[in-house]
Design a protein around this nucleic acid. Structure first.
Lengths: 120, 120
DNA sequence: CTATCTATTTATAAATC
DNA sequence: TGATTTATAAATAGATA
């Protein structure tokens, strides 16, 4: 969709990479928004720009709630739902292990939140 | 992008809604994939089909790791990164409260995971 | 960085197989 | 149901401001 056909590989020029990110980020979020409305579904998108800044979108629910809905699924359902399962890092994943690690990282924040909750 | 211009509102016919979901889901995931490669970034997409089935995509990292990277950000950074902050439900959100609720829901699974970890 | 301008490529709505 | 076709709408690469 442009003057030339673009090969899908890392854009090496940092300026072009950031410009392309900005344009395509907007396009992707628009698509996610349209899909959430047209099909009346839960959707969440999280991405980090090349410079490390976070952007996210979610439709009807808060992103935390979509992720909760996701993480509460049985492991097998999550695993079967992976798009592009052929990507290298997915081989040999022990989903449970990574989930465990994630949850452990969440733990300290959980404790802090519980502390804060006492004063709410 | 089709024979007619499509108004962005809920598709009432269930069959059409599911068909549109399937097509646009593929398009969205392709876009997310291309963005992750072109711009060499972390991205995660989670969505639930009209019939409730989950689909997700993530680029370089597991989706859990992207969410961890997200959730570990300070509240204010997350809040400032919201796309379409004008959507109704975002008004008056106490991000911390919702995060707390999310984390509490994760708690029991965390405990189960920790139990399982003893045998790994 | 953000916004516009267009030539092109890409996505997709509706129809058809 | 799902795959393919095709006319058309939409996204976007590169240039420019």
């Amino acid at each position: 969709m442009g003057r030339v056909k673009l090969e899908i590989k890392r854009i090496e020029n940092p300026t072009n990479r950031q410009v392309t990110f900005s344009k395509r980020r907007n396009g992707l979020i628009k698509k996610a928004y349209e899909l959430s409305i047209l099909c009346d579904i839960d959707i969440a998108v999280i991405m980090f720009s090349p410079s490390g800044r976070v952007n996210h979108f979610s439709g009807r629910r808060r992103i935390e709630d979509v992720f909760t809905r996701y993480i509460n699924l049985p492991d097998q359902v999550r695993d079967n739902a992976v798009s592009f399962p052929e990507l290298p890092y997915r081989r040999g994943i022990q989903n449970k292990e990574y989930l465990l690690r994630t949850l452990q990282q969440l733990r300290s924040e959980n404790d802090i939140a519980l502390q804060l909750a006492k004063f709410v």
